[in-house]
Design a binder for these strands. Structure first.
Lengths: 213, 213
DNA sequence: AACTGCGCAATGCTGCCGCAATGTTCATCC
DNA sequence: GGATGAACATTGCGGCAGCATTGCGCAGTT
């Protein structure tokens, strides 16, 4: 039944992670986040509602649609009140299941982007993306790492060693002025655009990102 | 019937605004915001779904539960796809109605737009079909998933890992350049048609869907 | 049985990045 | 205060990792 459902849902362009038991399901939802969860109450190792409750207890608000063989009202009420978002009794029509899933998945994007600002720059940490006055600024990976490390401490000193670690990692043994190179290239791009920031070098110590008026 | 419901819901500590017609309901929801809307399809001056559609068009994401006399699947699918969040056929058990209302209200609903546009493309999320200047564009499943993930963030960066997760599941362990393949094929189709968009690759980070002029 | 979607691998290519050479700035010493 | 050396800045270049594209074969669908 589960495999038939997966095939059917796949035909509607959904990407499915399938779990055969409550335990397996728990591992799956812990491992990654999903747009929605479809779960049966009758599972080999327990009631699907158990999973719902533990999810909600852990503040996981992923929409859940519960399937059940029992269609009595008391049953539905119980399921909905335990944190399920919808409840469908077997036998059900596949089209209805699909429509209900779609309704569930129109949910808010819970993950708020984490954004650091400095001057006219905005750095979206989640998406590794820099924009300057809302215009995207494409930066190579290493230059972005430099900028990120500096923006995390805008206006304050960042030690050279600390920058090295942020850009190259720990065991990476760089024996050249690669860091200076990246800083230089980054400077050029920041001043070419009207970024509102500048990078000051402090001899013997490190760098500071300064907001320019 | 509406008055009986109001009385019953009041007994559960809910505060009810009652409207006798579609017109009146429209005025009410415009005047103030509600935690949820309960509406019948059969109203003296039209179908309750009309209200749902105009609400969603106006970006009003208030949860809506639709009551109907007709309980056929096609009917439910229609209602849910037009923006309703739940659908209950008469006759119904009051306890179930109550539970479903509770489930709706504890869920912070903010609906994503049903249709995403970029360039000359329009992606209908509900029906999972793409059209370009109103001409349908048939895309294989995986390419559609790529396009959808990119169009959800048009003009902004989508990380490679994020795309991977959107296109392949978690148990699908892909260890090749399958993603690149799909992007490539998608590019070909988008440029063959006059789509008004292009996919930029950003080395080491991911992809961006860009609107071309 | 024909067909299409998809994963995979081979191939070519772009551009990032480390490196070094050269120029420039700044602190220190006399 | 000018000479001096060290630390930093900038630029060109080559290697190579990562991306783009294409063809192929298998599997699932019709």
């Amino acid at each position: 039944m589960a495999q038939a459902l997966r095939a059917a849902l796949r035909r509607h362009d959904m990407v499915i992670d399938l779990a055969a038991s409550l335990l397996e399901a728990g591992d799956l939802v812990a491992a990654k986040s999903h747009d929605a969860i479809l779960i049966d109450r009758q599972l080999p190792d327990g009631d699907g509602l158990t999973l719902v409750r533990s999810l909600r207890a852990a503040n996981n608000m992923t929409p859940v649609l519960v399937l059940t063989a029992r269609g009595e009202t008391a049953d539905k009420v119980d399921g909905l009140d335990k944190g399920a978002d919808d409840y469908l009794a077997k036998p059900f029509d596949f089209e209805e299941l699909l429509a209900r899933l779609r309704a569930l998945m129109r949910r808010p994007i819970s993950m708020r982007p984490q954004i650091i600002r400095a001057g006219h720059l905005a750095l979206d940490l989640g998406h590794r993306e820099v924009s300057i006055r809302d215009a995207p600024l494409i930066l190579p990976r290493r230059e972005l790492l430099v900028l990120e490390a500096l923006m995390r401490r805008t206006g304050r000193m960042v030690q050279r060693a600390s920058l090295m670690e942020a850009v190259f990692g720990i065991d990476d043994e760089i024996q050249s002025n690669a860091l200076d190179t990246h800083v230089s290239r980054l400077r050029r791009k920041l001043s070419a655009a009207d970024s509102g920031v500048a990078i000051d070098g402090v001899r013997g110590v490190g760098y500071v990102l300064r907001e320019t008026a």
